[in-house]
């Protein structure tokens, strides 16, 4: 900085070096990030290296918990369930969210703002409440769906049976997160310049062709990001099976998903050390799967 610049600056302003400034702006976020994410992670990693027993107390065991977790069939069973869940739920959710976003963006519907908000509201409902609402609706003998079906003279499927339960949970997730994804797509679609639409109209493209050939390809990066978020979210599934367990005890056991397993180990089995190792292993699985998906998607786009 030259002398003149410094003089020109009003006196009451605090002068901050340009290399320092960004960090000051980041500070509020970084503080929270460190306090509520980094520190707990370090703490969890630390306890994952120990083992506390009811008799014998605490001892350092190094990587023992990780070796055990890696070979634990209960953990991998849970991962298997979540893969099934993700393959079932993510495509449906992303697909419907896209369709609704395109419809809202096309301008053919009335009361656009109303529909946009209505689809988004479930996302504002906490997962606990959503699951309680749905588990009431799913009740086979006394739930409203079952009763209505019987009133109309047919039998509704047993939503909490082995055959349907994963679909029932996926449906709750669909209800909760479809609107959230839809809003993201809608925002991305709104950002597409209008001259593209004018150009396609001039070229004689139908609204459908414009949507599928121009709009969709333009928001592919957004779609990829939402899919990655959904994969991460799916692999962390906990609230829905946890709350619906008492209705479907024979299908949802206490290690139904890896997070559920970690919960059981900590709060029922008094094994927080092992649970910490399970959590890190799950984090590893999520990182690998997300990275694999990104790699796959990017290769497709490059082609």
């Amino acid at each position: 900085m030259t002398e003149r610049e410094i003089r020109a600056r009003p006196r009451n302003r605090v002068i901050v070096n340009k290399t320092v400034a960004p960090y000051l702006f980041l500070a509020p976020f970084m503080l929270l990030f460190i306090a509520f994410l980094i520190v707990p992670l370090i703490y969890a990693f630390d306890i994952s290296l120990y083992k506390k027993a009811m008799v014998g107390g605490v001892k350092f065991v190094g990587t023992d918990n990780y070796v055990k977790a890696f070979a634990d069939p209960k953990f991998w069973e849970g991962v298997g369930v979540l893969f099934k869940f993700a393959f079932l739920q993510i495509p449906v959710m992303i697909g419907t969210a896209l369709v609704f976003a395109l419809i809202l963006d096309s301008g053919v519907v009335w009361a656009k703002a109303f529909f946009r908000v209505s689809f988004f509201i479930p996302y504002a409902v906490p997962a606990v409440i959503a699951t309680l609402i749905w588990s009431y609706l799913y009740g086979p003998a006394y739930g409203p769906i079952g009763q209505t079906a019987r009133f109309l003279g047919f039998e509704a499927p047993d939503f909490v049976s082995a055959k349907w339960i994963l679909g029932s949970i996926a449906n709750i997730a669909q209800w909760e997160y479809m609107g959230y994804n839809m809003i993201i797509y809608f925002a991305a679609l709104q950002a597409i310049p209008t001259d593209l639409e004018e150009a396609s109209v001039v070229d004689g493209a139908s609204a459908f062709a414009f949507a599928t050939r121009i709009k969709l390809p333009m928001i592919v990066p957004t779609i990829i990001v939402t899919v990655v978020f959904s994969i991460i979210g799916s692999l962390q599934l906990f609230t829905e099976p946890f709350l619906i367990q008492n209705m479907a005890r024979s299908i949802i056991n206490s290690n139904y998903t890896p997070n559920y397993y970690a919960y059981t180990l900590t709060f029922v089995g008094q094994q927080p050390n092992y649970a910490a190792a399970i959590s890190f292993l799950l984090g590893g699985v999520i990182a690998v799967v997300s990275y694999a998906f990104m790699l796959l998607a990017n290769r497709r786009i490059d082609r």
Binding site: R249, S250, N253, N255, T264, V268, G269, Q270
Partner: peptide
Amino acid sequence: APFQDYADQILTDALAKAIGG
């Protein structure tokens, strides 16, 4: 048991699975 809750959880997991067929 001094770990009754855990034993109960294991027991219920197993019996529920059996009764589920």
